[in-house]
Design a protein around this nucleic acid. Structure first.
Length: 245
DNA sequence: TATATTGTTACACC
DNA sequence: TGGTGTAACAATAT
C-alpha cells in the first residue's frame, strides 16, 4: 500500500521524469508531497493532486492496463498513467492545493515534524492508543498500517499503549524510529505488498526488512517471542508481546 | 462467502 | 462540548 515512503519514491521519480513537460500547454514546474498525497504543480497556478489509497499506481510512460483509470498525455508523446484496481484512489485538478480540505486538515508530514512538536502534540492525546494515533493523518501525515507496526517494533513500544502513558524516553524512541524506518524504507524504494510499484513499474525492496507486519506466529527477530496479531481501531496490528513494552 | 485494505465521516457515549 | 471509540462506506481480489 502506498504510504509515505512509497509516495515519496514515486515523487522523486516523477520529478526527474516529468518536470518541464507540458500538458495541455501548461508546464509542470514541480512534484510535491504531503503525507500520502502527491501534488503535480503546473505553471499558471494549477495542480493535479493524487491519493493512491490502497491499490493506486502512478506510472510514467507505460501502456494502459485493465485497471487504468486515467492517462495524462504530454506534448512530447510521453504520458503519466493512473491505475487503480480498487478504485479507492482519486485525483483532482485544483487551483491551489494548499486550500484543499484534504490537504489543509493533514497534520505535519512525518518526515518534517520536529521532536519537540511531535512530543507536544502527542502529550495532548492522553487516552488514544499509540498505533491508531500514529496512523491518524491529522496527527502526523504519511504513516499507515505497515510503517506504524514497524516503527513501534523498532521503538520497542506496544501498539495498544496509551499515548499519554508513554515515558519521555519512549516518546523519543517512537519519534526516532519513525524517522529511521521511513528514511530506510525510502532508501529501499518502499514496500511492495499488494499492488505497489514505483513510477517505473518496479517493486520496492523494503518488504524484506519488515520485522512484524504480516509476520504473525513467526519468531521475533530480537527475542525468543512470537509475533502476535491483534485488532486495533478496526485494523490489524502486529507486534512482539515479549520485547515491546 | 467472509475478510482484508484506506481515510473520512457519522454517530454513540461519557 | 470535546475527546474517544466504533462502524459504515467506497471496490475488488482471494
Amino acid at each position: 500500500m502506498p504510504e509515505l515512503p512509497e509516495v515519496e519514491t514515486i515523487r522523486r521519480q516523477l520529478e526527474k521524469a516529468i518536470v518541464n513537460k507540458k500538458l495541455n500547454g501548461k508546464k509542470i514546474i514541480g512534484v510535491g508531497r504531503k503525507g500520502k498525497m502527491l501534488i503535480v504543480d503546473f505553471s499558471g497556478k494549477e495542480a493535479l493532486v493524487f491519493h493512491l489509497k490502497l491499490t493506486g499506481q502512478l506510472l510514467f510512460n507505460v501502456k494502459p492496463s485493465l485497471y487504468t483509470r486515467e492517462v495524462f498525455k504530454f506534448n512530447d508523446g510521453s504520458c503519466l498513467v493512473f491505475n487503480d484496481a480498487r478504485k479507492f484512489g482519486w485525483w483532482k485538478k485544483v487551483k491551489d492545493p494548499l486550500s484543499m480540505k484534504e490537504i489543509k486538515q493533514l497534520g505535519p508530514d512525518a518526515l518534517e515534524i520536529s521532536e519537540k512538536d511531535f512530543a507536544s502534540r502527542l502529550a495532548k492525546r492522553k487516552q488514544v492508543k499509540i498505533k491508531p494515533l500514529l496512523m491518524d493523518q491529522k496527527f502526523v501525515a504519511g504513516i499507515g498500517n505497515i510503517y506504524a507496526d514497524e516503527i513501534l517494533f523498532d521503538a520497542k513500544v506496544k501498539p495498544d499503549r496509551k499515548a499519554g502513558g508513554l515515558t519521555g524516553k519512549e516518546t523519543k524512541a517512537v519519534f526516532e524510529s519513525m524517522k529511521k524506518i521511513l528514511k530506510a524504507a525510502i532508501k529501499a524504494g518502499g514496500s511492495s505488498v499488494r499492488d505497489y510499484v514505483d513510477a517505473g513499474g518496479r517493486q520496492g525492496g523494503f518488504v524484506k526488512y519488515h520485522k512484524v507486519y504480516q509476520k504473525t506466529g513467526q519468531k521475533c527477530q530480537r527475542c525468543p517471542g512470537a509475533i502476535r496479531r491483534i485488532k486495533l481501531g478496526g485494523r490489524s496490528a502486529h507486534y512482539c508481546p515479549e520485547c515491546q513494552k
